[in-house]
């Protein structure tokens, strides 16, 4: 396999330096499998996809469920983003859908994943994110599609911090923005 390069690869050193303070963890988690699933949630196909995922597709807006290492994040009334480890395959999902109406599209390289963790993670994101990130409102099990600074992101709160999924072409901008937003916390 030819050498792959993740969208924020050039930031590895600067992220590591910023993470030394202990206030914040910044890192790219590259090459995660991401699969966009579109299907009628009421359909038998949706149930079969749920069975293949090991967890039913969540139908409550703004929720994400886990099945082992796989997260299934609600994106719309008939749209989900499946996020799994690098080796996770889309093929079983395609097979589960079969030739019924729906779509299973591998979008792994469409967005990269940035981890914003540590005690100041919420404050850093709040500089550019209008939604309420308080754990009582937006804790593990939630997901949001929103703006972080001027980039569209998918936000997934974790036990410690947040996963920020950003389109590959915006990754450099957002990495620069995060490092800038972190200035006060890591200097």
């Amino acid at each position: 396999m030819a050498e792959r390069r993740s969208p924020a690869a050039a930031f590895a050193d600067r992220f590591a330096t910023a993470s030394k303070s202990g206030a914040l963890t910044l890192a790219e988690i590259p090459f995660l499998r991401q699969i966009n699933v579109r299907v009628d949630p009421e359909s038998p196909a949706a149930a079969d996809l749920g069975a293949a995922l090991g967890v039913a597709l969540p139908v409550s807006p703004g929720t994400a469920v886990r099945s082992g290492e796989v997260t299934v994040a609600w994106q719309g009334p008939d749209e989900w983003l499946v996020i799994g480890p690098e080796g996770y395959e889309a093929e079983p999902l395609r097979a589960a859908l079969g030739d019924r109406h729906g779509s299973v599209v591998d979008v792994s390289a469409q967005r990269t994943t940035l981890l914003v963790g540590g005690p100041r993670a919420r404050e850093v994101l709040a500089h550019g994110c209008a939604i309420d990130l308080h754990p009582s409102v937006f804790g593990p099990g939630a997901v949001a599609q929103t703006m972080l600074a001027r980039a569209q992101v998918v936000l997934l709160p974790q036990q410690d911090g947040f996963l920020v999924l950003v389109r590959s072409s915006f990754a450099v901008y957002l990495a620069e923005w995060l490092l800038d937003a972190a200035t006060e916390y890591v200097t």
Partner: peptide, 18 residues
């Protein structure tokens, strides 16, 4: 605020940009 200079508007780049 910080919406100035290089951060004023996102610059989108391709995988070949570097």
């Amino acid at each position: 605020g910080r919406d100035r200079g290089a951060l004023h508007d996102p610059v989108r780049v391709t995988a070949l940009h570097e």
